[in-house]
């Protein structure tokens, strides 16, 4: 199994705040890689560094053999990394299908001159995008909503459209930032099976999620962050048994403190 994304000693400081501090991570091809941690642990910041929104203060990230330091977000996207957002960032005033078209833009080769002259290559490109776009929507059950404005859909649907838009990029690595946030148990179950299914179809996936049942049942490797630092990395079983992780989530010596109060 080859290494797809390798982060080496990555840090991001905002002034005196160490949002991400010396984190190492390796995502292998074929993984469903989970990143968990309490609120403010630096998970989304870490995603933002990987996808090029932030530049790391120190450290090195390589993706599929390319160094990502200094690359612009659009270049990283073109290398094959697609993502969704914690707070949905769809193009609200465009239809679902148009949102997915945006994802396909990286794959077309024809230039502006072709568009103006309306060449055959341009027409076949447009045709291809349309067919592929409908295919992606179909796989997510979004086909009936293809002409609806993205902003008018329900929250769960919008999350699906975001995933569809990211899939349209044909990514080698798919980053999902809290994909199940705001969903009910049933929707979470569905989403989990969908993610596992995507993985079986060959997508490598990294996800941030607070729902433990979701993470423990879908991921094969998990990274735990707290206050910007890595406190544990391993399989779900290893993470569950880890003392540091339990402390991060439930607090150190909480029971002792209670006893003291009772006495």
């Amino acid at each position: 199994m080859s290494q797809l994304l390798v982060a080496n000693n990555v840090s991001k400081h905002f002034g005196g705040l160490k949002a991400v501090d010396n984190v190492d991570m390796i995502i292998n091809e074929g993984d469903i890689f989970g990143i968990i941690g309490p609120n403010g642990a630096g998970k989304t910041t870490f995603f933002n560094i990987c996808s090029g929104v932030y530049k790391p203060t120190t450290g090195e990230i390589t993706f599929d053999g390319h160094s990502l330091v200094g690359q612009k977000p659009e270049q990283i996207a073109r290398l094959g990394m697609a993502r969704t957002f914690q707070n949905i960032r769809l193009f609200k005033y465009m239809s679902v299908l148009e949102n997915v078209f945006i994802g396909f833009q990286t794959k077309t080769r024809t230039g502006l001159a072709d568009a103006i002259l309306h060449t055959a290559a341009y027409k076949s490109d447009e045709q291809l995008i349309r067919e592929e776009g409908l295919k992606v929507l179909d796989s997510l059950g979004l086909l009936p909503f293809k002409d609806t404005k993205a902003g008018n859909l329900s929250y769960g649907m919008q999350r699906k459209v975001e995933i569809a838009r990211a899939l349209a990029l044909g990514p080698k690595l798919l980053l999902l930032d809290e994909p199940a946030a705001g969903m009910n148990q049933l929707e979470k179950q569905e989403l989990m099976h969908f993610v596992i299914d995507l993985n079986k179809r060959g997508y490598t996936i990294a996800l941030i999620e607070h729902d433990m049942r979701f993470v423990m049942n879908s991921c094969n490797r998990i990274l735990v962050l707290n206050f910007g630092q890595k406190i544990c990395e391993g399989t779900p079983e290893e993470v569950r048994e880890d003392k540091g992780v339990n402390e991060a989530y439930f607090g150190k010596g909480l029971l002792v403190g209670r006893k003291g109060a009772a006495a």
Partner: peptide, 25 residues
Amino acid sequence: KSKYGISMRAVSQDKTAASLMGLNV
């Protein structure tokens, strides 16, 4: 209709998201 028009509308709505979708803002 054109893909350039659609990308430009995307850029006008959310520049960060557009760049993360591989569009050259």
